[in-house]
Structures are given as structure tokens and as C-alpha cells.
Computed example of a mutant assay.
Amino acid sequence: MVFLSVINWARCRGPDEFWRKRRIFRLAAHYIGRRRNCYSIAVRNVHRALVYATKARKLKKEDMKSLWDVRITAACEQHNITLFSLREGLDRANIMLDRKSLSDLASWEPKTFEALAAVAKYKLETDRFIDGQDKCHPTGINLNLKDVMLEAWLNEKKK
């Protein structure tokens, strides 16, 4: 491009404007009507959508945490232990599992979760820990570590 005067050079925004608008139009490609074709309308809608997407990322994390806690709590009630006691017992037994992995074990591998609950309960009993956090006692089956652990499994394998 050859500019004969400084005024024409200043008025030309160059290729940067094309690519800036193209980026907005690509983000608005799935919209309908003028929201897709008119730049001034598209840029408003794209910015609003990006704000919603930013907020949704935080909300998704919170939703997943609450879902994992619900799954773990339900599995704990089956094994007669509270969520607080389970977490405390696993921490004292140096078993470092996060919410997601505990939730996966609770839903997909219930025998493994039962063993973890028994280990946590045994560790709390040996440490003489009293759960003062939860006043109500869960209704479930009492676990003994000896019932859950490997002896029965090993005896089955030998046969």
C-alpha cells in the first residue's frame, strides 16, 4: 500500500482490524441473524457469552465438589461412618485421597470403599477419637477390619 499523505495513512487501520473483527465473528458463528453478521451487535453478545463462560467455570467446580460429597456421604451411611470420621480416619492412616477419587471408589468400587471405611474406623478406634462433629449416628452396617480385609479373599484364591 502506498499512501500519498499522512492523513490517509492515519485513517487506514490495516490488517489488524480485519483479524480483530474476524476473531469476534468466529466466536459468533453459531448465533442467528444480526447477532452473527453485524459486528457491533456480535461483539456485545460475544462479550456477554464470555462473561457467562467465566462464571460457569467456577460454578462447575462447586457443583462437582457438592456431587462428590453427596456420593461419599451416601456411601459412608451404608457403612455406618460419618464423612468427617472417614476423612479424619484416612488422614490419620496416611491415606491421602481427594474427594474425586473417594467418590469414584464409592460409586464404582464399593468393596474397596468398604475396606477404606473399615481402615478409617479401625484407626479412629485405636487413636480413641470421638466424633463430636456429628450428633446423629448414621444407620448402616457396623464394620470390622478383620471382616473386610484380605484373609477371606486369600482363602478364596487358594481354593
Rank of each mutant, 00 (worst) to 15 (best):
M1F: 12
M1R: 06
F3D: 06
F3P: 05
V6T: 10
F18P: 03
W19S: 14
K21Q: 15
I24W: 03
I24P: 01
L27H: 01
R35G: 10
R36A: 08
S40L: 13
S40V: 07
I41K: 03
R44S: 12
R44C: 13
R48K: 12
V51W: 12
A53Q: 05
K60T: 08
K60F: 13
K61H: 05
E62Y: 09
S66C: 11
L67H: 15
W68P: 04
T73I: 09
C76H: 04
E77S: 13
H79M: 14
F84S: 11
F84C: 14
F84K: 03
L97E: 09
L97K: 09
S107Y: 13
W108Y: 15
T112F: 02
F113V: 06
E114W: 00
A115W: 00
L116D: 03
V119N: 01
V119S: 02
A120L: 08
K123M: 12
K123Y: 03
R128N: 05
R128Y: 06
F129E: 00
F129S: 01
Q133S: 08
K135V: 04
P138E: 04
P138F: 11
I141R: 10
L143P: 03
N144W: 02
D147L: 01
E151H: 10
E151A: 14
K159E: 15
